[in-house]
Write a protein that binds this DNA or RNA. Sequence first.
DNA 1: CTGTTAGCGCGTTCAC
DNA 2: GTGAACGCGCTAACAG
Lengths: 327, 327
Amino acid sequence: MGHMEDVARIAGVSLMTVSRAINSPEKVAGDTRERIEKAIAKTGYVPNLSASSLSSKRSRIVAAIVPTISNSTFAETVRGLSDTLDAEGYQLLLGQTGYDEAKEEALVFALLGRQVDGIVLTGVSHSNALVKRLKSLRIPVVETWDLSESPIDMVAGFSNFDAGGEIGRYLLAKGHRRLGFSGGPGDRTDSRLAGFRGAMKRTRDAHLTIALLPVGTTFRSGREALQILMEKDPALDAIFFANDAVAVGALMECQRLGIRVPQELAIVGFTDLDIAAEIEPGLTTVQVRSRTIGEEAARMLLTRFKGEVVTEPIRDLGFALVKRASA
Amino acid sequence: MGHMEDVARIAGVSLMTVSRAINSPEKVAGDTRERIEKAIAKTGYVPNLSASSLSSKRSRIVAAIVPTISNSTFAETVRGLSDTLDAEGYQLLLGQTGYDEAKEEALVFALLGRQVDGIVLTGVSHSNALVKRLKSLRIPVVETWDLSESPIDMVAGFSNFDAGGEIGRYLLAKGHRRLGFSGGPGDRTDSRLAGFRGAMKRTRDAHLTIALLPVGTTFRSGREALQILMEKDPALDAIFFANDAVAVGALMECQRLGIRVPQELAIVGFTDLDIAAEIEPGLTTVQVRSRTIGEEAARMLLTRFKGEVVTEPIRDLGFALVKRASA
DNA sequence: CTGTTAGCGCGTTCAC
DNA sequence: GTGAACGCGCTAACAG
C-alpha cells in the first residue's frame, strides 16, 4: 500500500506538496509534479479518502436515493447520475427506499454521516424531519422525477400532474368516457391520477374506475390489473396505466382475451420503455427523459460543488405524449 | 449538527462511552445508554463516518462494480446486494465499467481509497494489476456472474460455458444444424459462445454463423442482429442470442418478416427476463438467478466481515434451460 | 511554488 | 462499566 509519506520521501518533497500534486496539480511545478507522479506509480500509492474527507470536509461522494433500482426507469436515472459524476471524480452511494418514506429518512440520515457532498432524492414528497434537516444543513440537494414550486433546494423533473392531465384530455377528445386508471404506490402515481381526474372534471358524463396495485411493475401485474378493472366496469373503453410495463402486460392480456385495441379498448402507458415502440399495437405513452433527469441532477450538483450558482434551480425537463396505435 | 462531544456533555459521560453506546451498546449500562440515546435524539447527532472509518479502518461500505446498470439483470444483482447489505448497516458504492477492463481497474483503485470493506466484481476476468493488488490487499472480494476454479477470493455465479453448451446440445438434438449466434461484448458472452461451439464439435455437419453486437441490449439491436445473421446465412434454422432483450427483438422482427418461429427458425435467449414468458411465442431461454447472485455475494462478504470463514467460497448458483415455444 | 503547524472527529489501548 | 491519551492520514491556513 504505502502512505503519502512514502511518496513524499521518495520524491524528496513534503507531504503538502504531494497532496497538492494530487488535488490541484496546477499549483505544483512541472518537474516536482513529475517526480511525485513517478513516486506514486512506484509505490502504488492510493490516497486514503477517509482521511481526506475528514480533513477537508468534502467526500466527493453523492448519495442517490431511489424507490427501487429494479424499475428500469430509475436505473436509467442512476446511470445518468453515475456517468456524469464519475467523469468529475465523484462517486455514487446508492440507497433504495422501496417507496417507504420512513426508510428514505433513515437512509438519508445514515448517508449524511458519510459527509456526502450532495444528495439526489426521488420525488418531492418527504418526511418533515428529513426536509427540515436537509434545509438546515445547506447541503446541495436535488429532488427528481417531479416538480415543486418550493423544492428543498433544487429540482429536476417534469410535472406528473400535467402529464396525467394531458392523457385525460387526449382520451376524452377521442370520445372515450368510461375511463380506467391503474398504478402502483408512490406520489408520482398519485399526481398523475390527480391530473387525470382534473381533466375529467369538465366532462359531465365521464366516469372513472380505479385499480391500485401493490409494489412491483411487472407484465404479469398488468394482466391482473386489466382483469380487475374489466370486472369492476366491463364497459370501460380506455385505460391509463401509470407504468409502461404494466400497460404492456395489459396489452398482451387483451390479445389473449380477444379484446381489440384500440377499437374496443384504448390503452395508454407511462414512461416510454423500449418495448412500447416495438410491441404490436404500438403503445401510446408518455415519454420521460429518465437518463437526462439523472444527468441534469448531476450537473446541478457539480455546479454547486464548484461554488457556482445554479441559475435555474427548478428545471422542467418536460414530457411528451407519444401517440402510437394503442390509443 | 453537533459532534459526539455535545452528546457526551449532555449525557454527562465521556466521549468513549458515547462511542460505545453507538457501536456496541451491550457494553454500556442500561441507564447510561438511555441517557445517551436521549442526548442523541435531542441534538440530532449523526456520527461522522469519515472519522470513524479513519480511526477504525472499517468503512461499512461495499463497492459494487457492474458493466452497466441499464441492463436489468445487473440491476437485479445490485438490488440483491443492496438489500442484503443494507439490513446489516452496510452501504453500497456503485461503479459502472461499460464493459471496459481499464475502466474497471481505475474504478476499483479509486474505491480502494475509500477503505471499502469489500468489493463485488462482475465476471472473473480482470486486469493483471487489479488481480494482483486485490490479492495482496487481502480485502474480501466476490466475483460474480461466472465461475472460476481460482477466484481472486470468492465467487458466486454459474457456468456460462456450460449454459452455452446446454443450449447447443438442445438445438442439435432438435435437429438444427445451421446455427447462428449473436451477443454483445463481455467475457460472459464469450464463454457462452465457447460452450455453444464446444457442443457443436461432435456434430460434423453443424455450421455456425456469428454476429457480434456493439454495447446495448435493446429490442432494436435484436431486429438488426436477426437481419445481419439472415443475410450472412439465409439458411439458418436456429439462433442463440446471448441476451433476452435482443432475442425478443429478433422474435418481433420474425413476426414482421413472416418468419415462423420455431418452425422455420428456432430462437433461444439468455437471462429469462419477465417478458420471455409473456411474449408469443414464449421464448426458450436460460434462467439465471440475478437477484440471488447479489444476495449470495452480500452474504459471503457479511460472513467475512464478522471474522468468520466462508466454507464454500466458490458458489455455483446454477442455471436452468427454460423450454418454451420459440425453440 | 513549497514547507510548517495544527487539527479534522472518532476509535483503540490501556488504565481505573 | 467507564475514562484519558494518543493517533488514524490527510489538508487548511499560514509563512516563506
